[in-house]
Amino acid sequence: MSGFDTETPEGVDPERNIALPNDGHVESGLRPLKRLTSDSRLDRIHGDTLAKTELQYYSAFAREFCRADYNFCAAKMTLARGGKLVALDAEFRVAEAFFKKALTWAHQLHGRSAAMSAESVTLEIKHPLSGRLVRLLTMYDALFVKTLEALFARSLMPHQRKLALDSAQARIKQIPFLCMPDNDRYAPEGELLPNPDNAH
């Protein structure tokens, strides 16, 4: 069993086996990212910081999050004020604590090291929260790699790995969920208020 709180995903296959290639090298099989969605939106925003970072990633989840969600979140976080900032900060604290616990667990597993090919993408950092989001993606990919190595060494079952990664993905997916509502939808203490358009 995993050493941190998870939810049981549906459709797991505990009998699935993954074999390590003879040369110990694993290709990522991921296509390089050429364009990220919401890049024009982010370009129009002048943020608190104007930095760029190169994210090395191994997982399809990190690739797809960068492609579809990162620039949207980065733009929304740069414009966030008041209760929305409070809500985002609180969610980052929960996610960071989760990943710290998950990585501690993963590093205790016996693993068979494999040389994996990484892809990279350049991401803009216009707000400190954007940097924290990049850090979460880096931590997710570290969990992805460590649990894959444990899978190769048969110290972790496929369904246990899927459970861990599903839980980790759910934590990161909370960030774009909180970015969607406008600033005025959040109370000063960070609570999301009901949408007045849906009031009956």
Rank of each mutant, 00 (worst) to 15 (best):
A170Q: 11
E27C: 00
A95L: 06
N198C: 13
N195E: 03
E191A: 04
L30M: 11
L143M: 13
C66I: 07
K84A: 04
E189S: 05
L85S: 11
A80Q: 00
K126A: 04
R44V: 06
L123R: 01
L137D: 11
K126D: 05
F61A: 03
L50R: 08
A164G: 10
E119T: 08
L129F: 14
A150E: 07
L165K: 02
A187I: 07
D48M: 14
N17G: 05
D5F: 11
L88M: 10
P14G: 10
L42G: 04
G29H: 06
K146A: 13
G131Y: 03
P188S: 01
S40V: 06
P21Q: 12
S167T: 15
V26K: 04
V12Y: 03
Q108L: 15
L109S: 02
H159W: 05
K100C: 04
I175K: 00
P14S: 08
A68F: 11
V26R: 06
E124W: 05
S120M: 06
N71K: 01
S130Q: 03
D184I: 00
P194Q: 07
A142T: 13
D141P: 04
H25A: 11
R35A: 13
S130P: 03
D182V: 05
W105E: 15
R171T: 03
E15N: 12
G47I: 02
R112C: 11
G47M: 12
D48C: 03
A75S: 14
A114I: 04
D43S: 12
I45W: 00
E124Y: 07
K52A: 07
Q169I: 15
R67I: 01
A62R: 04
G29D: 10
A97F: 11
P188C: 04
P21N: 00
R185C: 08
F72S: 01
R63E: 09
G47T: 13
T8V: 13
F61D: 08
A68G: 06
V94W: 07
N22S: 13
A106S: 14
R135I: 07
N17V: 13
H127L: 00
Q169L: 14
L79G: 03
C179K: 05
M1N: 12
D141L: 06
A106Q: 05
